[in-house]
Write a protein that binds this DNA or RNA. Structure first.
Lengths: 207, 207
DNA sequence: TACCCTTTGTTAAATTATTAACAATTTTCT
DNA sequence: AGAAAATTGTTAATAATTTAACAAAGGGTA
């Protein structure tokens, strides 16, 4: 299989989540237009994405829900799963942990870090919190490959550097401050304010 | 001015934030490559975005920081500002409120809603929480145009419907469940799990 | 002055992403 | 059997986005 576009990867993740819900309801097959409806996109796009991963449905029944779930899993997940750490146990950090607890996934948050002594050595929704200075050690011992940054913006560069030095492979930065990482590390950044300002712009102009 | 691309709007919001920091440091002028460095993009893209909004820098000094901030404000903000409500006072909802409190911006979170009686009538970081049943009334009285959904996924469709019926203009949905809105309403959705799974994929394939 | 360096503004090209179009296939109905 | 309807898979077309290329301008310097 050749390159899968970034956007396709994102949609596959979302298809899988929708499919898992369908599977739980006992639905065995699904049509492209049904998936499309759930995700507010076009059926063509769904078929195209599915084509790109080399799966084939049947003409009258559509796609086999479980097969598609499994195939997307083969593409996105690693067999053993990946371990995740969260840095910064504020409201956002706790939200992430809670968010994850329900889901069954190949990604597990296995450690948290914070600089506040009141938080270290405590567990948050089952995830133990360590002091930031222990980051290098824990990340290596626990084989953690992804770090989520949910600290205040000012601390982001320093935390990023620590994560990079600890041998992390991917980073999700939720602070509004863009951070720099070596090109071997995959970086994703999301900024809530930007999302809101974008909505504001379109509300304003569409009015 | 003609259509500004979505991506340009997102970047303008980010440029402005970077520029505000520069201005606070007393920097009066900035080059496209400096902005680009901060945002990890190319200088050409910065110049192109700035061209699209009709601003012009000077050849030897670059762009005037304050002028650019003001112009981006003219584009993104409304003069009087927009009011925002947050629905669901869990960790994520509180994170959003805290996030906003520091920033000076034309968007203000003026109300929160929750179904938990222990939370209603309380204030969270200065934002008063009402019962969900009061949504229609409060949104009209407070002239709220944007709603942020931070409830558990299962409740998302019902909350969305209430927001729509209350006359909201834009929605930011943080639940993993895609919601349906009439086309007159601007909808933005963000799903943390998708972001993480995307990172996982690239960590896996880039290894 | 004449040349070099830097930076903007902008057009053109390339790339990426989405949408349209449609042949092929299977089922259902008459 | 033959026609009609629905759906997939795929190629072609379109649209959106990014990147490249480069002329023009200004300032420094020998």
């Amino acid at each position: 299989m050749k390159h899968l576009p970034h956007k396709t990867i994102e949609r596959l993740s979302q298809y899988r989540r929708a499919l898992l819900i369908c599977a739980a309801k006992g639905k065995a097959h699904i049509f492209s237009h049904e998936i499309a409806k759930i995700q507010h996109i076009t059926p063509v796009q769904v078929r195209r994405d599915i084509m790109l991963i080399g799966y084939t449905g049947t003409l009258r029944k559509g796609y086999n829900v479980q097969e598609l779930i499994d195939l997307i899993g083969d593409i996105i997940d690693t067999k053993e799963g990946l371990n995740v750490a969260i840095v910064g146990i504020g409201n956002l950090g706790r939200a992430m942990i809670n968010y994850f607890n329900g889901k069954r996934t190949k990604l597990s948050i296995v450690a948290a870090f914070d600089s506040n002594p009141d938080k270290v050595e405590r567990a948050f929704s089952g995830v133990k919190c360590y002091h930031i200075d222990q980051m290098g050690e824990i990340i290596k011992n626990e084989n953690i490959s992804i770090g989520i940054i949910t600290v205040p913006a000012g601390a982001a560069p320093e935390i990023t550097e620590k994560l990079v030095n600890s041998g992390i492979k991917g980073i999700l930065n939720f602070t509004p401050k863009p951070v720099n990482v070596p090109s071997r590390i995959y970086l994703e950044e999301y900024d809530m304010i930007t999302s809101l300002e974008k909505i504001a712009f379109f509300v304003k102009t569409h009015a």
